Amino acid sequence: MNWIPAAEVKKSRYEQQFGDLDERSLVRKGNAAYAAGLALLMAGEGEAADWFRRAAARWRESWSGGESWGRPVGALKASLLAHDDAAVEELAPWTLELGSATAESPIGRYAAAIALLALGRWPEARHVAESLRERDDFPHDVADALAYISAHDVAGYAEAVESVVASFETRDEHLEDVAVADTALALQELARRRGMEHTLPASPVLPGSE
């Protein structure tokens, strides 16, 4: 993919506004900004962080309760990829205050696990991650990676996160049609916060592969 032209398309979509800036419009803007950030990240452009911050802000603004757990997840992932520690430190407690750790939805639990890992609350993160590993409606390799980060199991994490990358290489659908293993990249940021370093193999869905 030609990443710079792709980023320009997503930026243009972000700027478009039809009608009121309501919840759905904010979500669309968040999606477009995140896709622009991913494309710029793949192109090695420092501007990516600005677009990740926009995505996090729009998704946070769009939250209206209910089961829209993908929005806190997205806001946290975007802030991690932007290396915006201040935003992560604000979003993580907010995500937990929403009741994500005890949510019935696996995506709610996922949001909680990310938040707890971002805050360095390892035992609590492990408890939530283990609850995800027991489910059949959540990717097992992502749950494994979260659990291994919380347990500081480098070998287990390496296998799990590489499985996550492989799943992105073979899937047919990606957010905004931007084929980037953003989940693996966010997991890498969480692993670094745990003092774990693992270099991912080259992949067309990761930066630096071209």
Rank of each mutant, 00 (worst) to 15 (best):
Q188R: 12
D172E: 14
S163F: 12
A57N: 05
A35W: 15
R194L: 05
W59C: 08
R28F: 07
S100A: 14
R58K: 14
M196E: 00
S167R: 07
T170W: 01
S167W: 01
G70E: 03
D172C: 10
G99Y: 04
P201V: 07
G19W: 10
G37W: 12
S150M: 01
I114N: 11
A181S: 13
L80M: 15
A32L: 02
A179R: 12
V178Q: 15
P106G: 01
E89R: 12
A43V: 13
L21R: 06
G195S: 00
P123V: 05
R58A: 00
A39E: 07
V27I: 06
A181R: 03
G156V: 13
G30E: 06
R13I: 10
S209M: 02
A48H: 01
A151F: 13
P5Q: 02
D153Q: 03
V27P: 02
T95L: 10
L206R: 12
G156K: 02
E189K: 09
T183S: 15
S100Y: 04
L119M: 14
G66Q: 04
S131G: 14
V142C: 09
A111Q: 08
L206D: 10
R53V: 02
G19V: 07
L190F: 06
A179C: 08
L190E: 08
P123T: 11
L91C: 02
N2R: 14
L21P: 00
A151W: 08
I107L: 13
S163T: 00
S64A: 15
S131H: 09
G99K: 07
R135E: 00
L116M: 12
R194M: 13
M196Y: 00
A191S: 00
A125Y: 11
P123K: 02
E176H: 06
E210Q: 11
L80D: 09
S203I: 04
A202D: 07
H198Y: 14
E159M: 12
A118T: 03
T102V: 15
M1A: 15
K10P: 04
D136Q: 15
L41V: 08
S167E: 12
A181P: 13
E67P: 02
F168Q: 09
A33S: 00
G195Y: 00
G19Q: 05
V165E: 05
F168S: 09
F168C: 11
L175G: 11
Y34H: 13
E130P: 14
A87E: 07
G156S: 07
E104N: 12
S167Y: 03
R58S: 04
S12D: 15
W51M: 12
A111K: 05
E97Q: 10
L91M: 04
D84P: 07
A43P: 06
L98G: 06
G44Y: 04
V165A: 08
A39M: 04
D177M: 11
L40T: 00
V27E: 07
E45F: 13
S163Q: 09
L80G: 05
R171S: 10
L81E: 09
Y148L: 05
S25D: 04
L96F: 02
V142S: 10
A43C: 04
I149M: 09
T199G: 00
E23P: 03
